[in-house]
C-alpha cells in the first residue's frame, strides 16, 4: 500500500514536472509581458502620473471616479458597442447570407474566395488609407456620381455624425468575406442525410434553415462571434489612422483609443490606467458570459 502511494506520488511528481516544463515558456512570457503590465496598470490606476515625471502621487480612487464621471465616456462606450455589434452581428449576418449564395455551386467560386480573404489580411494602416480616399467626396470614386447628379457628396470623415459609420464600414468590410469563408466551409460539411430526413417532414425552407442549418452551424457562429467580438472591442488602428476620434472628439473614438489618447495626448496615464483596468474587467465578464450562454445554444456535433 505504502509503496503504491509512494510510487503514484513519484509518478504524479513526474507528471507535474512535465506539465510545468511544458507550460512554462508561455507562462514566463505571459508573466513578463502581459500579467506584469496588468499589475503595473492596476498600480498606476491609483496614481496621478503623466509618464514624464520621476514618479506620480498616490490619489486613491480618484482616477476611477474620473472613469465614471468622464463626460466623454458615454459616447466612447456607445461607439465601441456600435462598432462591435456591427462587426459581430451585421457582418456575420451578411457573411452567412453570402455563404448561402456561394454554396449554390455558382461559377467563379475560386475568384470569390480569394476576394473574400483579401480585406481581412490587409494591413489596417493600408486599408484605412485607401478608405480615406474612397470616402472623400471630391477625390474618391463616388465623386463622379455626385458630379453627374449635381450634388455635393457627404464628407464622411469631416462629419461628426458620419465619421463613426466610416469606421464601422471598414470593420464590416474586413470581417464579411473572412466570416463567409468559414460559414461556407461549415455549410459544405453539413450531413446530407439529415437534410433528406427533414425534406420528408416539412416543405418550408425557412424551417429547415431555422431548425437544422442554424443549429448545425452554431459552433461556427460561436467561434466567429467570440473571436470577432474580442478583436472588435479592442478596435484601435482604424480610429488612429482615419479620424483620431474626430472630427470633434470623441465623435468616432473607441474605448481603447480613448485611453491611449488620455495617456499620450492629455498626459493622464493614471486615468488611462483606470480606464484600462475597467476595460479588462468588463471584457472578461462579457466573454465569460458568452461562453456560459453558449452552453444553451451551441451544438457540437459529437
Amino acid at each position: 500500500m505504502g509503496r503504491r502511494t509512494k510510487q503514484s506520488w513519484k509518478r504524479n511528481r513526474a507528471e507535474w514536472l512535465t506539465f510545468l516544463a511544458f507550460v512554462s515558456p508561455n507562462l514566463v512570457l505571459f508573466a513578463l509581458f502581459t500579467y506584469w503590465p496588468i499589475v503595473y496598470s492596476a498600480y498606476l490606476s491609483f496614481m496621478d502620473w503623466n509618464l514624464l515625471t520621476a514618479r506620480g502621487a498616490f490619489v486613491e480612487l480618484a482616477n476611477y471616479r474620473v472613469v465614471f464621471t468622464d463626460p466623454q465616456i458615454r459616447t466612447v462606450i456607445g461607439n465601441t458597442l456600435i462598432y462591435a455589434c456591427a462587426v459581430v452581428c451585421v457582418a456575420q449576418a451578411l457573411a452567412f447570407a453570402l455563404a448561402l449564395l456561394l454554396n449554390r455551386n455558382v461559377r467563379g467560386q475560386v475568384f470569390f474566395r480569394t476576394l473574400a480573404f483579401a480585406p481581412h489580411v490587409t494591413t489596417t494602416a493600408a486599408a484605412a488609407l485607401v478608405w480615406v480616399l474612397l470616402l472623400d467626396p471630391d477625390l474618391g470614386p463616388s465623386s463622379v456620381l455626385y458630379n453627374a447628379l449635381g450634388i455635393h457628396g457627404p464628407h464622411f470623415l469631416a462629419s461628426s455624425k458620419l465619421a463613426l459609420w466610416a469606421i464601422v464600414s471598414i470593420g464590416v468590410w474586413k470581417e464579411v468575406g473572412f466570416a463567409s469563408i468559414f460559414f461556407l466551409a461549415g455549410l459544405q460539411t453539413l450531413p446530407r442525410d439529415c437534410y433528406e430526413a427533414a425534406e420528408l417532414e416539412t416543405d418550408s425552407g425557412w424551417k429547415v434553415f431555422r431548425h437544422l442549418t442554424l443549429p448545425l452551424m452554431s459552433p461556427v457562429v460561436f467561434f466567429l462571434s467570440v473571436s470577432g467580438f474580442i478583436a472588435a472591442i479592442k478596435a484601435f488602428d482604424v480610429v488612429s489612422v482615419m479620424t483620431q476620434g474626430g472630427p470633434v472628439y470623441p465623435a468616432s473614438s473607441t474605448y481603447v483609443y480613448h485611453l491611449y489618447r488620455l495617456a499620450f495626448q492629455e498626459f493622464r496615464a493614471g486615468d488611462a490606467s483606470a480606464f484600462a483596468v475597467v476595460f479588462f474587467v468588463i471584457t472578461v465578464a462579457i466573454t465569460g458570459l458568452q461562453f456560459r450562454l453558449a452552453r444553451k445554444w451551441v451544438h457540437y456535433g459529437d
Binding site: T34, P37, S41, V256, Y260, V284
Partner: peptide, 21 residues
C-alpha cells in the same frame, strides 16, 4: 482561464510597462 483571458487585453495597455521592461 488565466491564459485565455490574456486575449482580452488590448496591446495599447501593455505599451508603457513593456517598453520600460
Amino acid at each position: 482561464l488565466a491564459v485565455i483571458s490574456t486575449m482580452m487585453i488590448p496591446d495599447e495597455m501593455k505599451l508603457v510597462p513593456n517598453y520600460i521592461l
